[in-house]
Amino acid sequence: MAARGKVTISVDECKGCGLCVESCPPKCLELAEELSPYGVHPARYTGSECTGCGICFYCCPEPGAITVYRLAPPAKKTSTLVAEPVAP
């Protein structure tokens, strides 16, 4: 099953402070081993377990470094099993 949330981190904006890694409740962020072009170890999403809570977004000092996504609620099913309610 897909994670409830997803995080993208802009390597161009991340300064590698690590506050998001520290703050993430499910611990699904890490600092990359390789250096970014700016000479820091940027944060990255491990790829699973994100709940989309957004804490990392608020702890991150850079305005646009982190973007948090949440799984969209499933589209309304047009089920054939349940009849649509009909207005009287």
Binding site: G5, K6, G54, V68, Y69, R70, L71, A72
Partner: peptide, 15 residues
């Protein structure tokens, strides 16, 4: 159904 409609909505982004 969930795998097929696995779309993410932006929750927090640069203001």
């Amino acid at each position: 159904e969930r795998t097929s409609s696995e779309t993410y909505e932006t929750a927090h982004e640069k203001s």
